[in-house]
Design a protein around this nucleic acid. Sequence first.
RNA 1: GGGGCACUAGCUCAAUGGAUAGAGUCGCAGACUUCGAAUCUGUCGGUUGGGGGUUCGAAUCCCUCGUGCCUCACCA
Length: 572
Amino acid sequence: MINYKDMIADIIVENVSDLTKEDVLGMIEVPSDEKMGDYAFPCFRLAKVLRKAPPLIAKDIAAKIEGNEVFEKVESVNAYVNMYISRGNFAKELVKEVIEQKEDFGKSNLGAGKKVIVEFSSPNIAKPFHIGHIRSTVIGNAIYKLYDCLGYETIRINHLGDYGTQFGKMICAYRRWGNKEDVIKEPIKTLLQYYTKFHVEAENDPSLDQEARDIFTKLENGSPEEMELWQWFRDESLKEFTVVYDMLGIEFDSYAGESFYSDKMDRFVNELKDKKLLQESNGANIVDLEPYGMSPALITKSDGSTLYITRDIAAAVYRKEHYDFYKNIYVVASQQNLHFQQWFKIVELLGYEWAKDCVHIPFGLVSLEDGTMSTRQGRVVFLEDVLNRAVNQTMEIIREKGVATDDIEATAKQVGIGAVVFQELSNNRIKDYTFSWDKVLNFEGETGPYVQYTHARAASVLRKASEESVAKAAKLEMFNPEFISSDSAYELAKLIYKMPDVIKEAAEKYEPSILTRHIINIAQGFNRFYHHEHVNVENESEKLTKLALVISAKTAIKNGLALLGMSAPEKM
RNA sequence: GGGGCACUAGCUCAAUGGAUAGAGUCGCAGACUUCGAAUCUGUCGGUUGGGGGUUCGAAUCCCUCGUGCCUCACCA
């Protein structure tokens, strides 16, 4: 497949010696209006260098590019060079490539030999997995898939919140008011009840806090009884989390949470001391970050115990030594911006040059209509409930419409859960949003079901044609680009063509929504084409050619959805 | 109070410093005897929070003010 941008850049660089290819690639753009061509090159900035009026420069450049057979037309309009791709050849090359590559369309080997760690989801043990957790979980998964697709070796880490004084409280509460059967039946809800009760009781009886601290100290020192309980809480919680992960089709390579690093922290406290970075302050140890415009970072508490910043430092060093990452990505809420800035800086001050390879990918806050989420006050929406309701609603819609899917339940899961995932990945991650049932259960317009429906519709068109025709179309038999040179067909082809670049951009910017939006565009393009033209027509050549385009669009949508962690049903 | 982020159509959101700021949704008007109407077509809708500045060109960069959210030492 021709890389048009690359080609244009080469021609321009050849003729304008003052520019590097990189400059030119950055300047080439896609006009807002397709009537102005497929690619455009604005010449304003060349005026100073070339000491010539922009329109004249545009005219000269246009003359150089013109005559190249891949373009149907090249013209200069004021200071712009507008280039129109020759449609027939383009469509044929594109369709051929997509059909040949199938599920590999969009992949590349850009990251061959480089390891990327993505830390995401990371819920707290014994706390509910609620709608707020969907963000890190789903965005992180998409980022992992994007990097995987670009050929990077990836490691998915679920950095479980499985350590800290809270577990002293939990064990304390369990021993006082707990019951084994209840925990087994509903681990998280029960444990949370104990935890909440602990806080209520501790208000009246401060000795409880001391008891909890003592228990945690025992746990830290490896006391068998405490360890056993902790391990049990952890296992039961993880079982419950796994239900949700299975629904979402998400897996991890490592569940090394905070506890994993509990014995790996002394080294850094000592290193900080040796490098004279640590200061004593009110009995605690801090790193002064004032010179870098940040508030001080608390490394150890006045009682000598460590905090999560120390664990994060230990974890990062462990990962560097254990995996030797190229990039170490943290998909964690924007609330923790300062935390990450602080410890990235500390790692840098410790002299680790790879500090620059650690990236925090923040995302905005989810709130509920009646305020921010609060588990203790019962203001919480469980992720599992959201997914289940979306699935149930899908089931109803499928029954209403009477579509003959092979397995209604399986399809409803794909569509319902897909709807929730897709919506999560639709907007820029940095935006805050308010959770609303109406919105999450809306399946019309720019939604997951819309895109999946489009895919199912394409599948349906292929079913309508004979298997033989589809096989012939896939081999580009009787292919005549004339039949897909209409505006709607051409726009669709262009959108498919851009997908590999969009995948790269989404990965570079750690922004899955860029891909989500593009998939919507492809779906819109397909639906427009579908309504505008008939595919299964009498004329064999026309039919086979259009079928080839349908196969390509279907492939692109399916591959795109897969990168978002969604499946694309054949019927729905 | 310090720091950070956000502010674009009634609502939810797009827009690598480029040409006339685009979608979806809502409202209104249409399209199923023709490959799936979870669809499509048309229409209505804008002082890009206010004000300065830089630039040939600003929603985008800089300054300033406003509003909202997050964060700032023994939770994570």
